[in-house]
């Protein structure tokens, strides 16, 4: 009796192991669809997307308003009137945006200007490093993207991001969106997931520039950092630029002309 019980347990153990193995193998199985996957024809391509913001041409927060509004509309971003808000693009003062530069005698115009904040799409993104499910990941073109379907809402990425670029959906974002939703072509988010700026990856695939760039009237350049002739490389070659918290080694893809 005891012997047969042991045999049964062994068998059960082996079957469970085989089952898990089988499940694991099925995860790596071949494509389900009989057709072919291709990049979207007409999409914009780059080796490393980057953004250059000419802060000299944005004197006040109103100057940034069209960019922020364009982004909010394009991505159905809610306005929640608490500090549990969701932000993709927003503005803040020099001290808050570049806290490492503790210069008390900065020239007035640089100090008084507001600065636009968004996800930096880092070369070495800490959020990607810490995410336990690969819900946030880096694409070969330098964009740090998110799959909201996979996010478990652990918020490790928010602790990891040194730029405060990420927002968590503490409440149902739909309650704070106008009816009908501003952009019917783009999803909203749901409760319990993290979100952030996606460098308008969906617009790039459609052959369009990011919404904020389009709304900026040429004050924000967007292009391929690896291409010496691109608008961003030209802007960086001819102007003085800084990035946020460079000492952390994240290598942000967003540059500020000062």
């Amino acid at each position: 009796m005891k012997d047969s019980r042991r045999r049964f347990l062994k068998l059960a153990g082996i079957s469970a192991f085989a089952l898990i193995g089988g499940l694991g193998a099925s995860g790596a199985q071949a494509q389900i669809a009989p057709g072919k996957y291709i990049p979207r024809p007409g999409g914009l391509k780059a080796k490393r997307w980057a953004m250059v913001i000419d802060t000299r041409r944005f004197a006040s927060a109103e100057d940034y308003a069209p960019c922020i509004e364009a982004c909010d509309r394009a991505h159905n971003i809610p306005h929640i009137p608490t500090d549990q808000n969701v932000k993709w693009i927003w503005t803040d003062t020099y001290d808050h945006v570049f806290p490492d530069d503790m210069n008390n005698h900065l020239n007035t115009s640089v100090r008084s200007r507001p600065y636009m904040l968004l996800c930096n799409h880092c070369d070495n993104p800490p959020c990607v490093r810490v995410c336990p499910t690969q819900a946030t990941y880096k694409m070969p073109n330098g964009i740090v993207a998110m799959d909201y379907h996979r996010c478990i809402g652990c918020r490790f990425c928010m602790a990891g991001c040194p730029y405060g670029a990420r927002s968590f959906n503490f409440v149902d974002p739909r309650k704070y969106l106008p009816d009908p939703y501003p952009n019917k072509e783009f999803p909203t988010r749901m409760i319990g997931v993290v979100e952030k700026c996606n460098f308008c990856v969906e617009r790039l695939a459609d052959g369009k520039m990011p919404a904020c760039v389009e709304a900026s009237n040429g004050k924000i350049a967007f292009g391929d950092l690896e291409d010496p002739n691109s608008s961003v490389r030209q802007a960086l070659a001819n102007n003085f630029s800084i990035r946020r918290k460079p000492s952390l080694g994240t290598q942000p893809g967003v540059y500020y002309l000062i």
């Binding site: 669809a33 072919k36 996957y37 990049p39 979207r40």
Partner: peptide
């Protein structure tokens, strides 16, 4: 599969078999 291909592989189009 569409979601993973579109979001992760930048394959945002599908050619029907």
């Amino acid at each position: 599969e569409w979601r993973d291909q579109a979001l992760r592989e930048e394959n945002r189009a599908y050619v029907s078999h």
